[in-house]
Amino acid sequence: MTRKLMKRSVLALGLGAASFTLSACDGVSFGVGYGYDPFYDSMLWNDYYHDHDVDIDVDVTRPDRPDRPDRPERPNPPARPKPPIAKPPSRPKPPTARPPAARPPIHRPSPRRR
């Protein structure tokens, strides 16, 4: 009798612990979208085409930097075909951008009950 009880309680505790462990692995819906993407933003910013005349005395071993590329000359684009969807009338833009709307997580089906 006690043996059976012990078996059952071990099973119950084990299953409980397992469910906690498994739920810890569940992907958290954190950082939905690209509100803050530090690595992407940083990869955009470069000093490569920037003039470094200021610290030329400090960095004597540094090889000469190639010239900064000229701004490409853009010819006037040809008249664009009119897309089927018209643009909405422009609204006055507030000076401060609105923060991204907090969306509730997508509903997940609840675990099947027995």
Partner: peptide, 20 residues
């Protein structure tokens, strides 16, 4: 500063990993 196209990828549910 001139910037070329940057492509960044990361897991949908995890921002501990990034590749560009």
């Amino acid at each position: 500063r001139a910037v070329s196209r940057v492509m960044g990828i990361r897991p949908v549910t995890d921002d501990n990993v990034w590749m560009g």
